[in-house]
């Protein structure tokens, strides 16, 4: 187990290093002079030079990369050009909102996906199955930047149940979480259905039926429980989609999270902040996946021993 954890950590470290380099390169993708783009054409030459030195852009690329990585290890992400604040502080203000939104969306997704996938699998081929999979296909085909406005139109403007945007009180999280959660639920429901179908074909399910358990007990205690393991890993993998989707959903609902900060920074050409946001979101995705892998391996020994086969 220790070997597995170590090897998993090691490969995660390589990925984190790679992601950091990729994010570092972002600023060098700017067509033309990034300093001119950030400050505008009317900026004084002295200000430009000051920013160039502050960002380290006057040095060779390799020195810059080394400097960037050294600062990163010390959790120093630099300073926002527009707000003149340390980026770590800006991020710290925004992280709780995004974590809240992601967690509630995850709960929404699970609450929709498991019953939907289970019904579809148990009633395979029936109208219920078609209905559930139809819903899932619609969910995949409706992007969150359309779903969000539609929900606002119906539930905020017409019915007046929830606030249109912002983050005030409990009710303000309902629509963003529903938007983000349904998208994920559509993908999850399909996975729940296919894994449950596989599990329901196993011998121990036949045994459970043979000993006279009710169908609900068979599906709930023997089916879903065993189908949950792969689904948990897939939830971890879907977190990337969730976090990526959060960027757009937060913008739709003016939700004050990291995603909204990213878009604001892009609009203001505050590139160091953009870099930091992309890095933070990607790193949390990597960390969550390492964590899911380890938990999964702890529960199911076949994973950590299976590599040698």
């Amino acid at each position: 187990m220790l070997n597995y954890i170590l090897s998993r950590f090691f490969s995660a470290l390589i990925v984190i290093f790679g992601v950091s380099c990729l994010v570092f390169l972002l600023i060098h993708m700017v067509p033309g002079d990034p300093v001119e783009l950030m400050l505008g054409e009317s900026a004084r030459p002295a200000d430009r030079e000051a920013l160039r030195v502050a960002l380290g852009l006057d040095q060779p690329v390799m020195t810059q990369l080394l400097h960037y990585l050294t600062n990163l290890v010390q959790f120093d992400l630099g300073e926002s050009i527009h707000q003149r604040q340390p980026i770590t502080q800006l991020l710290a203000e925004r992280i709780p909102a995004t974590v809240q939104l992601a967690l509630v969306s995850l709960v929404v997704a699970i609450l929709i996906a498991i019953p939907l996938g289970a019904i579809a699998a148990v009633k395979r081929g029936s109208h219920w199955d078609q209905l559930a999979m139809g819903f899932s296909l619609f969910g995949i085909s409706i992007p969150n930047f359309w779903m969000g406005p539609l929900l606002i139109l119906v539930f905020s403007l017409w019915l007046g149940w929830f606030p249109v945007s912002g983050k005030e009180g409990l009710s303000s999280i309902v629509l963003p979480a529903l938007t983000l959660g349904t998208a994920m639920a559509s993908i999850l429901a399909r996975m729940v259905r296919s894994t449950l179908l596989e599990v329901l074909g196993e011998d121990y399910i036949r045994t459970a039926r043979a000993k006279g358990l009710s169908e609900v007990q068979v599906v709930w205690r023997h089916g879903l429980r065993n189908a949950m393991l792969p689904v948990i890993t897939l939830i971890g993998l879907q977190l990337g989609t969730l976090l990526g989707g959060a960027v757009i959903t937060e913008t739709v609902f003016s939700w004050p999270g990291v995603g909204q900060l990213t878009i604001e920074a892009i609009k203001k050409r505050d590139y160091p902040v953009v870099q930091a946001c992309v890095l933070l979101i990607s790193l949390s995705y990597v960390v969550v996946n390492v964590f899911t892998d380890i938990v999964y391996a702890a529960i199911d020994p076949r994973i950590r021993l299976g590599d040698g086969e």
Binding site: S11, I14, G18, L22, V247, T262, K267, Y285
Partner: peptide, 20 residues
């Protein structure tokens, strides 16, 4: 692996935002 670690739409947003 590195590209898969960054949510696709986020990377596209960052690229498009930075390139204009």
């Amino acid at each position: 692996d590195v590209f898969l670690a960054v949510p696709g739409i986020l990377l596209a947003i960052a690229f498009a935002g930075i390139m204009g």
